[in-house]
Write a protein that binds this DNA or RNA. Structure first.
Lengths: 147, 147
DNA sequence: CCACAATAGATGTATATACATGTAATTGGA
DNA sequence: TCCAATTACATGTATATACATCTATTGTGG
């Protein structure tokens, strides 16, 4: 068992990306029985909190390229989880939670809450809060640096 | 400019994933002129620190599915950045940095260092260190929870 | 009103990434 | 020694994600 230690990479990007992969697996594992991917779950949650939102704005909220959303949204529309309508500006596509999506979100909440509380317990209150704070700062930093 | 505020999602997973997307864009932007993706850069850096490493072990180091590595490694082999050889256990594929990869890594370092120091400055020393610490904990937690 | 720049998404393309499953090599008993 | 279980990758498939580019609209100066 004397294995080469994992070298500590001095790269913040790779550290955060690694943590992201790790967390993603945890959440995916929990959501799999419900038939939801993390990304999809997040979008359902955002829409449930924000109501009707144009695609570009949704991308801003998630710090995600709006054209990347096109693909994920297509899947979710196909499932009937979300609804779309044109805005006054007819280029815009306004998304909102459909009834089915609300139900799907509700079905997923117990599994999600279980993961959340377990992580919170294992990390401790301080680390838990710090993580929210720091990741939010990172997302804001990036938003500025791209303007 | 009175836009709906971005709803604060209580999901740690989505927060970390969002930060990861944000950071990824910053690093990708910096590495693009060099012709390296973040993932590739990270692998070059790991190999330069760890020497010859079997694929599965590399996956562990990066908390990345070893079969996901197959695709990225294929690209890097094609570029001649890394070398492979069979281990005593002939199922194993041992990877190491090739001369070309070392050169490529060297070419990328200035851009990477610039991003790193700018982030470090903007975040401050404490947040910078906390982020390394917390993301490492997350990766470890996940490793345990999957065993 | 009109030509042109700017904007919101859609689409093409490439990488990132995971899981299920397949294959070859290795290992652990019987 | 031989076979069953395990292990290390490879491959098929699906989603995630970004950027370049294209199209339809909208906004603007003349």
């Amino acid at each position: 068992m004397t294995q080469t230690a994992i070298p500590k990479l001095p790269c913040l990007g790779s550290s955060v990306r690694r943590a992201s992969r790790a967390l993603t697996q945890i959440y995916e594992g929990a959501l799999r029985p419900v038939g939801l991917r993390v990304t999809q779950f997040t979008i359902l949650q955002v829409l449930s909190l924000a109501g009707e939102v144009p695609q570009g704005r949704l991308g801003e909220m998630l710090t995600m390229d709006s054209t990347s959303l096109t693909r994920t949204l297509a899947i979710m529309l196909r499932q009937g989880w979300i609804a779309e309508c044109r805005g006054d500006d007819r280029r815009e596509r306004r998304l909102s939670l459909a009834k089915t999506g609300e139900a799907q979100l509700k079905r997923a909440l117990p599994a999600w809450e279980k993961v959340q509380s377990q992580l919170r317990r294992e990390l401790g209150e301080k680390a838990w809060k710090d993580l929210f704070h720091l990741t939010t700062r990172l997302a804001e930093l990036a938003a500025e640096s791209v303007q």
